[in-house]
Amino acid sequence: MTSTYAVHSEGLEKRFGAVHALRGLDLAVPEGSICGLLGPNGAGKTTAVRILTTLSTPTAGTARVAGHDVTGDPRAVRRSIGLTGQYASVDGDLTGRENLRLFGRLQGLRGAAARHRADELLERFALTDAADRPSRTYSGGMRRRLDLAACLLTEPPVLFLDEPTTGLDPQSRESIWEGVRQLTRGGSTVLLTTQYLEEADRLADEIVVIDHGTVTATGTPDTLKAAIGSYVEVVVRSTEALPDAGRVLGALTGGEPVLDRAAATAGAATTDPALTLPRVVRELDAAGVALLDATVRRPTLDEVFLRLTRRTTTDKETAA
């Protein structure tokens, strides 16, 4: 079966002894798109990437990358992928230029071609000035750019970026993001894992939220936000009115209110499209809660993420 998905997995499972790191992961990433694999620490993101890049084998389930089975034909998979991340790194004792030449040669580029390609990528990732320094002396951002360059040497059609910007300052993150966007303009497919919702929101065509080794939600950033509806938030004059505000909001939305004493705010999520701002204000006014401000807005991805992962945590606790 040839799929039009660049990455396609069904029922992927991975056990390490008693630890069940993946429990039936299904992924389908269309060619040329960016998929954001989003989840908290320990959700199984890295395990999934390690299986999809042939570094590890699944306990059960199947996965195809660029049409090749990861266990049946790992060599063909390796010819089609690039990986950067926590575990795949360059040699810190070599300079940036030497690293790119080495990895180019190991991927079949001949001497002159490897040299030329290395120079080209150093230029593109603004590393030319640092090209002849050992890469261990690079800043975090430069190091990630070099990592990214190292997996682009042969322009593989599918790229796996495992937490590409963890620990970077905002400016360095922007430059990595720009690099990733350029890739998909050239037709590559990107699967990136991240703990940053902002990153998924800004880059991904589709987000897959995983927790405890399984998918808890899938969709574009917009559909995920729509699924959780809108978010009502009010600022009260006195924090003593917070419990009342919370009770009213809870009754209106059917959701669990979130109270913030420091900011004097009460908020709740709702999927009820009929809930309007005037109605919120009227009800609170009737309950004698003095308001300074009130908003009904679409949730941020942070709120979506918290809701999705909190729900699975609760489910798990109930099950256990």
Partner: peptide
């Protein structure tokens, strides 16, 4: 060293 620093895993994902 190669194993701890992740260089080994980079090699492993190359089609060599």
């Amino acid at each position: 060293q190669d194993q701890q620093r992740g260089v080994m895993d980079r090699f492993r994902t190359l089609p060599m």
